[in-house]
């Protein structure tokens, strides 16, 4: 993790505006970088459609949207943490906790609870608490976020395994199963929930003080602190916010799967980080945001859908995603700002 950044560099949110004042040549370069992920997504879509026209069938596009719902919701949370210049490795644990709480409180085949939609509230709250714990550990004990969240990742995983007794518990509430099974305007309800999460994230990033503070902190924490922002408070809020998104994702995942087990989050952290990074959000913080992540999630989902359509082994997907992280980071990282990379 970059522990020292050049403090004389401007906070990143300002550069777009600054660039606009600086003449055409810079605009094209900045624009190129900002729209590169969109271009990648379009080219990818066109290539796959050319190779297999089934790709642009409505049924397949709905499938893509459905597959993108959970990753999008998770990646919203991860985006805010990465915008801070931190990392959140706890997504898989928090998703497992959210799904566990939902299934154990709604009607299921392991106990007699039947709290219906209250179980959803509890699950989202449980995710939020996981995030709050990550934030408290990081700011209170002053531990780098990747270590703090590595700890909460496994605490969440352990909690879910323990509460579920190491097995899978089925979700029997028809209304909650309906999140995945029922459709509204042609799309599964889960997709609308994920779009709602995206809208909330977009509003937080662009319209609220918290959103601006997160960007400011990621652009230069020392400067932000001198400007009167409390880093600890913003970090706590950002990690809690991320946890809330993971809780929602846990609800969606449990509803899609029809059950909850401890490995419900397996591979989700990797997909989320890939999406955030491929979308163009810088790991150094302060640059990018939820719109980038939406594009990133679509790139990752379209690519895996396309590979299935083209008959590529599904096992290669992780390999391809790994290479995508490397490529995206290599292309986007603003290395001039970093003196030490750890």
């Amino acid at each position: 993790m970059a522990t020292q950044t050049n403090s004389s560099s401007l906070p990143q949110p300002l550069t777009d505006r600054a660039v606009r004042r600086l003449g055409r040549k810079r605009i094209t370069r900045a624009a190129l970088r900002a729209y590169a992920p969109v271009a990648v997504l379009l080219v990818l879509g066109i290539l796959i459609a050319l190779a297999n026209p089934n790709f642009i069938e409505l049924r397949n596009l709905v499938r893509v949207a459905n597959a993108a719902a959970v990753p999008l919701t998770i990646a919203m949370g991860t985006t805010f943490v990465i915008l801070l210049g931190s990392i959140d490795l706890s997504a898989e644990g928090a998703v497992a906790v959210g799904a566990m709480v939902l299934v154990l409180l709604a009607r299921n085949d392991a106990n007699t609870h039947d709290f219906g939609w209250l179980a959803v509230l509890a699950a989202v709250a449980a995710g939020g608490i996981m995030g709050l714990v990550s934030g408290l550990v990081q700011t209170g004990l002053r531990i780098p976020s990747f270590m703090a969240t590595l700890g909460t990742w496994f605490i969440g995983l352990g909690l879910a395994t323990y509460m579920l007794g190491g097995s899978a518990v089925r979700l029997m509430d028809p209304a909650l199963r309906g999140l995945a099974l029922n459709r509204f305007a042609g799309l599964p309800v889960a997709v609308w929930v994920a779009l709602g999460a995206f809208a909330v994230a977009a509003v937080i990033q662009t319209q609220t003080r918290l959103g601006r503070h997160i960007l400011a902190l990621g652009g230069g924490e020392d400067l932000a602190e001198y400007s009167g922002i409390s880093p600890a408070r913003v970090r706590l809020l950002a990690f809690t916010l991320a946890g809330l998104f993971y809780g929602v994702a846990g609800v969606l995942a449990a509803s899609q799967l029809g059950q909850s087990n401890a490995v419900i989050g397996d591979g989700r952290l990797f997909a989320a980080v890939t999406a955030v990074v491929v979308g163009g959000t810088a790991l150094t913080g302060g640059e990018g945001g939820v719109f980038n992540t939406l594009v990133g999630v679509l790139i990752v989902t379209v690519l895996s859908n396309g590979m299935v359509l083209l008959g590529v082994s599904p096992y290669v997907q992780q390999t391809v995603q790994g290479l995508m992280i490397i490529a995206a980071v290599a292309l986007s990282l603003d290395r001039v700002r970093q003196t030490i990379v750890k």
């Binding site: 993790m1 970059a2 990392i87 490795l89 990747f146 990797f270 980080v273 890939t274 990074v277 790991l283 992780q318 390999t319 995603q321 790994g322 290479l323 992280i325 490397i326 980071v329 290599a330 990282l333 290395r335 970093q338 990379v341 750890k342």
Partner: peptide
């Protein structure tokens, strides 16, 4: 010049 946890998350994938 990628932080090690991201580099190894990627190669791990």
């Amino acid at each position: 010049r990628v932080p090690s946890f991201v580099a190894t998350l990627a190669t791990g994938g």
